[in-house]
Simulated assay, not measured.
Amino acid sequence: MKPQLHWFFVCSIVLLNSLQCDGIGFTFGFSAAAAAGAALYAGLNKLGCHFYECCDAKADWIRFNATALDLNFQRHLYGQHLVKDVVMRALKGHLSQDQPSKALVMSFHGWTGGGKNYVAKFVADSIYKLGTRSNYVHLFISTVHFPHEQQSDIYKLHLQDWIRGNVSHCERSLFIFDEIDKMPLGMIDAVKPFIDYHENIDGVDFRKSIFIFLSNTGGPEITRTMLKMWRNGVKREDITLKDMESLIERGAFNEQGGLHQSELIQHSLVDHYVPFLPLERRHIELCTEDDLKRRGHMPTKAMKQRVADEMTYFPPENNLFSTTGCKRVHQKVGYILANEVYDSLFD
Score class of each variant (00 low, 15 high):
residue 174 L to Y: 02
residue 18 S to Q: 12
residue 92 K to F: 01
residue 82 L to K: 02
residue 261 Q to E: 13
residue 137 V to D: 00
residue 43 G to C: 09
residue 79 G to Q: 05
residue 179 E to K: 04
residue 11 C to V: 15
residue 341 V to H: 11
residue 85 D to R: 14
residue 77 L to E: 02
residue 339 N to P: 00
residue 2 K to I: 11
residue 15 L to G: 09
residue 103 A to Y: 03
residue 7 W to F: 11
residue 317 E to N: 13
residue 60 D to I: 06
residue 285 E to Y: 00
residue 339 N to T: 10
residue 230 W to K: 15
residue 35 A to K: 10
residue 264 L to I: 08
residue 34 A to T: 15
residue 310 E to T: 09
residue 316 P to Q: 14
residue 108 F to T: 03
residue 268 S to R: 15
residue 217 T to K: 09
residue 115 G to R: 00
residue 174 L to E: 05
residue 171 E to Y: 03
residue 10 V to I: 15
residue 266 Q to Y: 08
residue 37 G to A: 11
residue 223 T to R: 12
residue 127 I to S: 03
residue 288 T to W: 02
residue 172 R to Q: 14
residue 234 V to C: 05
residue 124 A to M: 05
residue 313 Y to H: 09
residue 165 G to M: 11
residue 299 P to S: 07
residue 10 V to W: 08
residue 44 L to S: 03
residue 103 A to D: 01
residue 334 G to T: 03
residue 21 C to G: 08
residue 290 D to M: 06
residue 2 K to N: 13
residue 210 I to G: 00
residue 263 E to W: 06
residue 231 R to C: 11
residue 212 I to R: 03
residue 272 H to W: 06
residue 287 C to P: 05
residue 177 F to M: 06
residue 21 C to L: 13
residue 58 K to Y: 10
residue 206 F to W: 03
residue 235 K to P: 00
residue 218 G to Y: 01
